[in-house]
């Protein structure tokens, strides 16, 4: 394959460095708006799709998108069917055993969601006392709240995310602590139109989840991608794209 490309390059009389490298970006074939989704005509749209294209352009990489089933996306990377994964993949130690991540391009904080007119401050004991705070059981959010309030606050415990969001809409609870990325679908839905992120968890004991692009281990393109990401962050392209999809700082980290 490489040989063919080289032969072709030579045949057309092009010097190798001038040839932009072709990279296939694997993306979850299931829609995950606003991060990514595929239209009926086969084209990909969404924040991650645009961002990846911008980064590739800045890094002089020639990228195309390809839909891959989520549960087979890492094997697809390992077998060279795709060259990187830009599909809201959270950087976890377990994944780092098999793939290598770029610098994070999105961080997902835990956010307190509530009615847009509700006055809320997680650090004001008076407000907390008069707030009905809900969280899903068995999540790290629950651990965090229990830790933060030392069990002094009555939390409403839910079995599932959709149940607590239904009760939030019904007004039975005031505020829900939830992952930001997992809440985007609700916040952009008709039901959630009167709700917004009232506050964000800013606590060094509960760092946000970070999302990065996944590559095969030792891939030289990681450094190029990181450079490209740095460029789009610095020249404002990142914000330009992000502002189309989000009304908050989706990067959530100090910019390089």
């Amino acid at each position: 394959m490489k040989k063919t490309a080289l032969t072709l390059a030579l045949a057309f009389g092009l010097a190798a460095p001038a040839l932009a490298q072709d990279l296939k970006i694997g993306i979850d074939s299931a829609p995950y708006p606003p991060m990514s989704w595929q239209e009926a005509d086969g084209s990909f749209h969404g924040f991650e799709v645009e961002l990846a294209m911008a980064v590739c352009a800045a890094a002089a990489l020639n990228c195309t998108h390809e839909g891959v089933a989520w549960n087979g996306i890492i094997p697809a990377l390992e077998t060279n069917k795709i060259d990187m994964i830009v599909s809201s993949m959270t950087i976890t130690p377990k994944r780092q055993e098999v793939v290598e991540f770029s610098d994070p391009y999105v961080s997902s904080n835990a956010i307190y969601i509530g009615h847009k007119d509700f006055v809320f401050d997680p650090n004001d004991p008076e407000i907390i006392k008069n707030t009905r705070l809900a969280v899903q059981t068995g999540t790290s959010h629950e651990d965090y709240l229990t830790r933060k309030f030392d069990g002094q606050v009555d939390l409403k415990i839910y079995q599932a995310q959709d149940e607590q969001l239904a009760d939030l809409v019904a007004g039975r609870i005031d505020v829900v602590l939830s992952g930001r990325m997992g809440s985007l679908a609700f916040l952009s839905s008709e039901e959630g139109k009167d709700f917004k992120a009232l506050a964000m968890v800013e606590d060094e004991t509960y760092p946000p989840l970070k999302i990065g692009a996944a590559f095969r281990k030792g891939d030289a393109n990681i450094a190029k991608f990181n450079e490209g990401l740095k460029t789009v962050l610095q020249n404002g392209t990142y914000d330009e794209i992000a502002n189309k999809y989000f009304d908050f700082d989706v990067y959530g980290m100090p910019k390089p």
Partner: peptide
Amino acid sequence: ATVTVPEMYAVISQSRHD
């Protein structure tokens, strides 16, 4: 417990998660 009443089983299941 499934409708968020913090009765005995709800406490037990929370302790199991923790």
